[in-house]
Amino acid sequence: MTTDAAAAGPAEGAASAGIVVAGVARSFGKVHAVRDATLTVPYGSVTALVGPNGSGKTTLLLMLASLLRPDAGRILIAGSDPVTDPRAVRAAMGWMPDILGSWASLTVRVTLELTGRLHGMPRERARRRADELVALVGLEALADQPTRVLSRGQKQRLSLARSLVHDPRVLLLDEPASGLDPAARVELRTLVRRFADEGRSVLVSSHVLAELEEMADAAVYLDAGTTVSAERIRRARTSLRDWRIRALDAAALEAALTRLGVPARRDHLGTLVGVRSETDAAGLLTRLVGEGVPVAVFTPAVGELEHTFLDLTRDAGAQPEIGSES
């Protein structure tokens, strides 16, 4: 994962980007759900939308999905403004909501077919598309069952298929992995990468950060309704990060760390040490091997997204003036 584009400028690459968001704000009464969101998702890439509960991820996605009008700022989805031309946006955008709603008494196939009809497809094409999508998300066995019998994970697949009915160039996925079993998550990851390879813009929000890390080209952090600036992310990323070390000889490892003067903690999986960068980590590993420690595992204890996320969240508690810098 090459995390870089956190908060790119709005003017930058508007034509080659499926999603352009600049200074968007939305409040509900006194609650400022989104204060100042700015981000760009180029075509052919996947961007992760990361943030703690209540940071405004879903509100932001609702505005991108042309369902909610922003109080301020500007949004372009596939070159169209959802406020002035929602029809064009809806023709180009697929949205998978975070809540699982389906027409309970209709079958999976009919649900997809009718969604195609709602998108204005002729009956025959809608039917063919429904069959394709049933196969794509692996619901063949349940295609003629009413959707109320589906499990949570199966409903997620149906929801994904529904967002793809009209072959959109921009995909908004709100928590697509929740409720999926590990095998289905791998499939989802492959699928999302394929969407990007096909040239679509994909924005994915999720709490499963490890999952996101493996599929996203870039990440946008949303904190209290504000997209976190690239500067703050860089700072968070260079902060101390835990790496986990396991050696065949635990005692030798302890001794070596003490000799090298590296403070260490132990947890049930091994020994944890604080490391500032990958360069430092490589140096530490070289020295441990030099000391003759039989190192078996040497890995970051948390993923990069999670590390940045946790650090930013801590940051938020410490610095009340967040958001002023973006």
Partner: peptide, 14 residues
């Protein structure tokens, strides 16, 4: 309530 209104509203249906 069933979560099917918004998914209809993001289609071409006005």
């Amino acid at each position: 309530t069933d979560g099917t209104l918004a998914t209809t509203q993001v289609t071409q249906i006005s």
